[in-house]
Nucleic acid binder design. Structure first.
Lengths: 230, 230
DNA sequence: AGTGTTCTGTAGCCACGGCTACAAAAAATA
DNA sequence: TATTTTTTGTAGCCGTGGCTACAGAACACT
């Protein structure tokens, strides 16, 4: 059944640190179901009852959210190895907050939420690793969201740009580094418009604080940049 | 040692569904440490190595973050029963991202991160409940952050206000309901300025879409409100 | 090299919303 | 009831940044 996918699954974060040969045992204990979907099929419709979390085995799926006006906004695009619904599995929330749609023909593994914690704690030693992985995945996602909120809470284009660049600078260690996204993605990450962001970056270049060409950026005056944070 | 606090701890979310009489056993197995701090003492300084998560037993503590410009911003204010550092305990991140300071004289229980998962899985049956609680707490926090990001990503005052009111409306079930925060808190939750928000709400009242007096709000025209979401 | 596609920088217009300031209402304290 | 403190509504000023539009650069594809 899922034997074809053992190799793929063992690369997934949820099954990290679990040997491929033990994975089969663990799956035997988790008893997942596998479903196939055709392009444009809905895997999940918002407000449906949550029963199990999903892992993409093959193909790509899109997570959407319909806002109150009825327009659908894409939240994320998932492919092989990615998981969805992991936060719902452990919260009190009972309904899916989003809609999930197949972008291509795909196969999805579903894991019932009760199986993840409740079963075979003593019998199956890999379960402990599974729980650890789950805690790590959710915690890390929460930390990412936290950082995102920080960026979004900054008022002012300058503040956002300089905070972001300083963080990249700190991470890279060197004053010259490559941006991890293109202008469009960066703009929507910071929730500003792309042209406005470009305009401001150019101003900052004119002022001699930074220099850049496409995705390559150089911090010329870190102190001045820090002064622009607020 | 912590026997004085058993009653308090059993009310904490982390120890939910654990009988007070079993809590003592569990704590014996978790081997927490308890420290006292005076007003203005630092419990944690940002960038220190993370070793254990904390639970406030007595007093109040403030979580701060210093932005790149050096200005400190309060993230949250914690009191009896509140926990901090729970996301760090399970992520790969090794350093505290924030500073924690005592607002009053207080007592804090610290729980080493290894103890939470690694120990006594088979011996101590309450451990399973503890892990479940932890997963629930972190998942719920992630969901809250997710919702926060959604609000912050809405461009336009109208969009934010109407989305928020529609959500409250849905939650309440009735067109008349009470706002869960005052204007200041709501404004900073939506990351807008308080006067601008008030101005826009008044406009919406003039247009006959909503009515309100202080914290009491009435939705007069839900359809029109939905049209303002984007 | 040639073509189409995506990405980036730049310009100009103008509305949204931030900010300060103040007064009235409500709530807390005495 | 009187007094202080907090919360809320309103006004006016004006800068920030969103938006459309376009041209040139970079990239992908053949």
């Amino acid at each position: 059944m899922y034997t074809n996918y053992l190799g793929e699954l063992s690369k997934s974060l949820l099954f990290d640190n679990i040997q491929r040969e033990h994975l089969a045992d663990l799956l035997g204990c988790l008893k997942p179901t596998i479903s196939s979907y055709k392009k444009n099929d809905y895997l999940i419709i918002a407000d449906e009852e949550f029963k199990s979390l999903g892992i993409v085995l093959k193909g790509r799926v899109a997570v959407f959210k319909d806002n109150a006006a009825g327009r659908r906004v894409m939240i994320s695009l998932l492919s092989k190895g990615d998981m969805f619904g992991e936060m719902l599995a452990f919260s009190k929330q009972k309904k899916w907050p989003a809609t999930v749609e197949a972008q291509e023909n795909c196969e999805i593994l579903f894991l019932a939420k009760e199986k993840i914690i409740d079963e075979c704690r003593n019998v199956c030693p890999w379960h402990k690793t599974l729980i650890e992985n789950m805690l790590r995945i959710i915690s890390e996602r929460a930390l990412m969201l936290n950082k995102r909120v920080e960026y979004l809470s900054i008022t002012g284009m300058r503040g956002k740009i300089s905070t972001f660049l300083l963080e990249q600078f700190k991470e890279a260690g060197t004053p010259t580094f490559t941006l991890p996204m293109n202008r469009n993605d960066l703009a929507s990450y910071l929730n500003v418009s792309r042209p406005s962001m470009s305009r401001e970056m150019s101003k900052m270049r004119d002022e001699g604080v930074i220099d850049f060409h496409l995705s390559s950026v150089k911090i010329l005056n870190p102190e001045a940049l820090r002064g622009m944070v607020e």
